[in-house]
Write a protein that binds this DNA or RNA. Structure first.
Length: 853
RNA sequence: GCGAAAGUGGCGGAAUUGGCAGACGCACCAGACUUAGGAUCUGGCGGGGAAACCCGUGGGGGUUCGAGUCCCCCCUUUCGCACCA
């Protein structure tokens, strides 16, 4: 063989991912119907969705992992005959585009669209099977016009309103944030930037109208991780209790005004020994009107609260307060209680005022001890021993397992009953009522930024707030806006946008110049995928009826209370608008783990970033994809190791050579397409058994826990097993231990099992094998339980629980046989050393344990 | 502080229900082929020991014929919540 010939041969034998992937990439580019979902269709549907990315410029490994999981699942479902909807889009409004525009002097639209083009090319190169005919780009008018349309519907229903209030302001973003976007008092985008409070007039969506339903329906979401459900439950923070009015008394002014407290424990009200106000409580201003010294002390409390918020540990600061010298009257017993202002009372929860019951509340107890306020026991614990009922508990005693004492007419009631009766009592006498408070607040959606959906509202001097008529939608976001100007929203500096005509009176009107929070875009985008080009409506209900619910949603857990609660809210409103009939959008949610390297999140500053482009160039897309699935199970954190990708690349090369050179070296050989004979040699039979066991394992991984790492390990085992077959190296049929039909079956099923994980290589080998049809529509292989079954098994023999020997017995061997073989075993006899058998534990097919004395 | 998840070789990780701990891969060691090897193949690879054996799944106790798996206490890590009245 000349050197030239050798080179040619070695090139063919080598797994060359660049050659293979480029070839298929080009073919797939030419056929945009490959991954198109059928709609309408009578076939069973499967809607699998990964969270759409923000087009930041390039994909990172977290994206690759997320989309590899979804793509693998989508391909598996296709091969199982489902009509799969697997779309992709771009969450493309948002602040980074504006920042980039300022830095690079590129308009946000241009920057964004360029990033989209780049990331879309990366996705295609990675072989992700998306139905691009349904692509959704939220920053384009054909999408955001429906944000505006929805906004008008919300407004008609009273679900969108404008109010002036204290709002979260991020100085770096130069805009308002929703409560959900504030993390530990800081901006979710700028973790070191403390959010300020500003008084602004803003648009809000009434998500609190749905608080109860959002909470209740969490119980229905059985396909969601419990972790996410707990986070949403906490965020909604429902708390049932009562409001009670305390009349203000005292020497000066404001007589007759009241302080309303919120309590969940009205049953302890006879134990109240003070009233505590948040330092920002409005009535505090009256109380301090003539007392500069007191005012100064209260300002100090406010400063302490702010400090605590900065530290991020609100619970850890010392409780501290000041006595105002005034008192309030307990409406149940007429008692005069001193009014204090304290740093542990929060203005943004309940009413910002509480009754302090030291005997039955941790915090009140701590505070009362510090300031020597009286502690009055009003609940006695129930004891299982009736003789001991009246033993005083250690304080504070905070549970509901007790009965009332020192509580006038309510003495003797148990706590639960007392809460009901005392609430009614307060209602009947007009000084209180049952109420429910939530931690969830209405969703503030105004943003003082340019790159977002314009809010379709007008301000007319004569008619006030006027919605833009539906026929005038979309309100187009103007181009060529100078976004560097300060003072108000960027759009307020654009006269041709700002100035409009009032549709009611025809007079001049001003447009709203704030834009919408981008979480609106992602709250309903997955409905748009079902009908992406509809220009009459956001979507057609027919399509929703077929495609919804989304069968599987896959993304990071960081959106547990942002995107995922807004999306649920949006669906419920759409249902009440009659647009959809489902109560929830997502049947199942899967949150994949983060990708880290060297123990830390990949980041430029740490220099530990691995980019998809480099991985593709070095190993190919298949290796990068398979590695992200093999390194660990999808729900866990993935610790990236470059050597690991190397190992996967070697595995794919081994598989390539096995199929290409050893299993189907000659497709014309006689009997190639014949059925697999039943009289296989023991070696061939063992390999056939391994094949069926592998099909079983991989199939079960898809149906169960999605532990694709073990699926891929199973494929490796299969490849190793076949490679170890005697004579497999020989390129001539006569010397093969494995008959041609078995080799064909092995190759075929191996390729099918590989197809969801490594689509490029699978397609290449499918063609090598001479198969014509679309691999994505080829049926998933079925295992034959009879062929998967072992006919001889190894049984460990233990003596007193310690392994002493192993027996090789036929699979169905009866107990007596196994017992005798075990007792006759040489190693066992030696280990028993003539001792007496006390007991023999025999687990059929599993083990023998001989207990000796 | 409260709640959840996790802790297994040098590393990533297997071990669906209590039944042979360490599958699979990486790294490493030895060998083969080779002008060469960062290619490929073969073998080895938890610790101790010459071996028989002994020890070993964060630590301590328990249940069981048998525990990585179940129960109790403790430690560590990650995540969530955190004066929510």
């Amino acid at each position: 063989m000349s050197p030239d010939e050798k080179d040619v041969a070695s090139r063919d034998e080598r797994y060359d991912p660049q050659r293979i992937e480029t070839k298929w990439f080009e073919r797939w580019q030419q056929d945009d119907s490959l991954y198109r979902a059928e709609s309408p269709s009578t076939r069973p549907k499967y809607y699998v969705l990964e969270m759409l990315p923000y087009p930041s410029g390039a994909l990172h490994m977290g994206h690759v992992r997320n989309y590899a999981i979804g793509d693998t699942l989508a391909r598996y479902m296709w091969m199982n005959g489902y009509n799969v909807l697997h779309p992709m889009g771009w969450d493309s409004f948002g602040l980074p585009a504006e920042n980039a525009a300022i830095q690079n002097n590129t308009p946000p639209r241009e920057w964004t669209l360029r990033n989209i083009a780049n990331m879309k090319a990366q996705m295609k190169r990675l072989g992700f099977a998306y139905d691009w005919s349904r692509e959704v780009t939220t920053c384009l008018p054909d999408y955001y016009r429906w944000n505006q349309w929805f906004f008008l519907k919300f407004y008609e229903k009273g679900l969108a309103y404008r109010k002036k209030s204290k709002v979260n302001w991020c100085p770096k973003c130069a805009t308002v944030l929703a409560n959900e976007q504030v993390v530990n008092g800081c901006c979710w985008r700028h973790e070191d930037t403390l959010v300020e409070q500003r008084e602004l007039e803003q648009w809000f969506l009434r998500i609190t109208n749905y608080a109860d339903e959002l909470l209740r329906d969490l119980d229905k979401l059985e396909g969601w991780p419990e972790k996410v459900r707990v986070m949403q439950r906490n965020w909604i923070g429902r708390s049932a209790g009562a409001l009670v009015d305390f009349q203000l008394g005292g020497a000066a002014g404001a007589a007759g005004s009241t302080i309303t407290v919120f309590t969940t424990r009205i049953d302890t009200i006879y134990g109240a020994t003070s009233v505590q106000l948040a330092p920002q409580h409005p009535i505090v201003a009256d109380l301090t009107a003539n007392d500069a010294a007191l005012r100064a002390k209260i300002d100090q409390l406010i400063a302490e609260q702010r400090k605590a918020r900065e530290i991020g540990d609100i619970g850890a600061i010392e409780k501290h307060g000041v006595n105002t010298g005034r008192y309030a009257v307990n409406p149940f017993n007429g008692e005069k209680l001193p009014i204090w202002v304290a740093n542990y009372i929060l203005m943004d929860y309940g009413t910002g005022a509480i009754m302090s019951v030291p005997a039955h509340d941790e915090r009140d107890y701590e505070f009362a001890k510090k300031y020597k306020l009286p502690v009055r026991l009003v609940i006695m614990p129930l004891s299982s021993n009736p003789e001991e009922t009246m033993v005083e508990p250690p304080l504070p005693f905070t549970t509901l397992d007790g009965i009332l004492v020192n509580s006038g007419p309510f003495n003797g009631l148990d706590c639960e009953e007392a809460i009901k009766k005392m609430t009614s009592h307060a209602e009947e006498h007009g000084f209180g009522k049952a109420t429910v408070t939530y931690r969830l607040k209405d969703w503030g959606i105004s943003r003082q930024r340019y790159w977002g959906t314009p809010i379709p509202m007008l301000y007319c001097d004569k008619d006030g707030i006027v919605p833009v008529p539906e026929k005038d939608l979309p309100i187009i976001l103007p181009e060529n806006v100078d976004i560097t100007l300060t003072g108000g929203s960027p759009l307020s500096h654009v006269p041709e946008f700002l100035n409009a005509i009032c549709p009611k009176c025809g007079g001049p009107a001003r447009r709203e110049t704030d834009t919408m929070d981008t979480f609106i875009d992602s709250s309903w985008y997955f409905y748009r995928y079902t009908d992406a080009h509809n220009d009459k409506a956001p979507f057609d209900g027919k399509n929703i009826a077929y495609w919804f619910l989304i069968d599987q949603y896959i993304g990071g857990v960081e959106h547990a209370i942002l995107h995922l609660i807004y999306s649920r809210f949006w669906t419920k409103v759409m249902r009440d608008l009659g647009l959809v009939s489902n109560d929830e959008p997502l049947q199942r949610l899967f949150t994949q783990g983060m990708v880290i390297k060297d123990g830390a999140k990949m980041s430029k500053s740490l220099g530990n970033v691995v980019t998809p482009d480099v991985m593709i160039a070095r190993y190919g897309a298949d290796s990068a994809r398979v590695y992200t699935l093999f390194a660990t199970s999808p729900d866990r954190e993935l610790d990236w190791q470059d050597e690991g990708v190397e190992g996967i690349s070697r595995f794919l090369a081994r598989l390539f050579r096995l199929v290409n050179l050893k299993l189907c070296f000659n497709k014309d050989e006689p009997g190639w397409k014949a059925p697999v004979p039943t009289d296989l040699s023991p070696t061939a039979r063992a390999i056939q058994r391994k094949l069926h066991q592998t099909i079983k394992r991989v199939t079960q991984d898809f149906q169960g826990r999605w532990h694709f790492n073990t699926s891929i390990a199973a494929l490796m085992e299969l490849v190793n097993t076949i490679n170890a077959a005697p004579g497999i190296e020989q390129g001539t049929p006569g010397e093969q231990e494995l008959p041609a039909p078995l080799r064909r079956e092995l190759a075929r099923d191996l390729i099918l099992l590989l197809a969801p994980f490594a689509p490029y290589l699978a397609h290449e080998l499918w063609e090598t094998l001479g198969e014509k049809g679309n691999l994505l529509r080829a049926p998933w292989p079925k295992y034959d339980p009879a062929l998967a079954k072992e006919d001889e098994i190894e049984i460990p023999v233990q003596i007193n629980g310690k392994l002493r020997s192993r027996l090789l017995v036929p699979a169905g061997a009866n107990e007596e046989f196994v017992r005798e073989r075990a007792l006759a075993d040489e190693k066992v006899r030696a280990a028993m050393n003539g001792k007496q058998v006390a007991k023999i534990i025999l687990v059929p097919g599993k083990l023998v344990n001989i207990v000796i004395r």
